[in-house]
Every structure is written in C-alpha cells, then in structure tokens.
C-alpha cells in the first residue's frame, strides 16, 4: 500500500510540476509580446549567450569535426567508401552534432548561469523588489532571456557548423590525404538547404528550452545557497534532457517519411 502511495505521490508531483512549467512558459511567451520591452537587456543577454559562448562552442565543434572525419575514415575504409567522408561530416554536423553539442554546451554554461542569477535574486528578495518598483519580473527577467536565447542559438550553431566542417577538412586534407578542391566540392554539392535549416530550427528550440529551464528553476528556487545550487543543477539536467527529447521530435517533423 505504501509503495502504491509513493508511486501515486510521485506521479501527482510530476503532473503538478509539468503544469506549473507549462503555465510559466505561456506566461513567458506573453511577456515577450507585451510591452514594456527591454532592448538593452535583450542585447546584453544576446552578447552573454552568443559572443561569450563562442570559444567553448567553437572548440567543441572543431574537435567534433576532426574526430568525425577520423572515425569515418577508419570505418569507411573497410568497404572502400572513404570518398563519402565530406558528405558524412557535413550532414552529421549541420543536422545533428552542431545543434545538439552546441545546445548541451550552452545549457551547461548559460542555463546554469541563468538559474543561479535568478535563484539568487529570488532568495535575496530582489524579485519581490522588482514587483514593488512596478516592474513585472516575467517581462524584466524572463522575456529578455527567452527571446535572446531563442534568437542567438541559431547563429551560434551556424558558426559551430562552419568551424566543425573546417575541423573535418583539416584532418581530411592534412592527415588523410584528401584533395582540398574535391573535398570542398563534395561538401558543397551534397549539402542541402534543409540540412542547415533543420539544424537552425533545432537550435532555436534548444535555445528556448535552455532559457526556459534556467529561468523556471531560478524563479522557483527556495532556501538560500542550497536551493540556488539545486536550481542550477536542475536547470542544466532538465535542459539537457529536453534538448535530447526535442531533438528527436524536430528530426521526426523534418525528415520522417
């Protein structure tokens, strides 16, 4: 009986949390479209999310592209299909690895920072102070972050795609002995706009998820430093899981036959 009670309790808690999250997301979306707008804060967040994430995302992309070329070569060499490496690198990066790895790296960097900042504001009454100063915290804190993350991540992923493809190119040319002209030609001729577009749509979805989780967990943190620490962990873990789930859903929407 106690076991069933525990299952029921966990289930109800899960449904309650999901409901609260959906309401928070709707509230956040409404806050984006309703004035007042805070362009200065949106720009600040875009710089924080985009510009300052470039080094970590760039490093991830270049090494991923390099490893992808190397692994593909060792695998494809078994059935003499080495010439497919440019195509494999470009499609894997633009469709999957670029957006997913950039999303996960940004979830770690930005999702955690958002949860920690907003969580600290919550436990030190700064969010209540915003309300007493006639400022809606959803519009001031949440809307700029949701908007900036959704708009910036596609640009970040586009740059990650280019850097990743370049990583694959470097390994293919200087280590595996490919002809540079043929490699670039094969890369470009095989690449389709939908490959890139699907990756950028994924990036926008991931950006929204990362900011949503960061803001939601920060907003609902309680109990001082420990609460903020828990909110930070929850933000990163839940954003990462949502990235992987929504990655499948968007892939299904774009490419399922």
């Amino acid at each position: 009986m106690a076991f069933l009670q525990a299952i029921g309790h966990t289930f109800l808690n899960g449904v309650e949390t999901l409901g609260r999250l959906i309401l928070f997301a709707l509230d956040g979306l409404l806050a984006i479209v309703r004035p007042p707008y805070y362009p200065r804060l949106i720009l600040k967040q875009m710089i924080e999310i985009g510009y300052y994430s470039l080094p970590v995302v760039g490093l991830t992309a270049v090494f991923t592209g390099m490893v992808l070329a190397l692994q593909s070569f060792t695998g494809f060499a078994r059935f003499s299909a080495e010439s497919a490496i440019p195509q494999v690198v470009v499609v894997s990066l633009t469709r999957e690895l670029g957006p997913v790895l950039a999303g996960l790296m940004v979830a770690g960097r930005i999702g955690a920072a958002m949860a920690a900042e907003i969580g600290t504001m919550r436990v030190t009454d700064q969010i209540d102070a915003l309300s007493t100063l006639s400022t809606n915290p959803m519009r001031y804190l949440v809307a700029p972050r949701l908007l900036a993350a959704t708009a910036t991540l596609p640009f970040l992923v586009l740059i990650a795609d280019i850097i990743g493809i370049f990583g694959g190119y470097i390994v293919s040319i200087y280590k595996l002995g490919f002809n540079p002209g043929i490699y670039i030609h094969n890369t470009l001729s095989f690449l389709e706009p939908l490959d890139v577009i699907s990756g950028l749509v994924k990036a926008a979805v991931f950006g929204f998820m990362i900011a949503l989780m960061g803001c939601y967990h920060g907003f609902h943190s309680r109990g001082g430093a420990q609460g903020v620490g828990g909110a930070t962990t929850n933000a990163v873990v839940s954003a990462s899981i949502l990235i992987l789930i929504s990655n499948y859903i968007v892939t299904e929407l774009f490419f399922a036959r």
Partner: peptide, 9 residues
C-alpha cells in the same frame, strides 16, 4: 527590504 534586496548587477 530586510536584506536591502539591492540589484547586485
């Protein structure tokens, strides 16, 4: 506010 609640940013 009790803890001042100043915006530290």
């Amino acid at each position: 506010f009790q803890g001042s609640a100043l915006f530290d940013s």
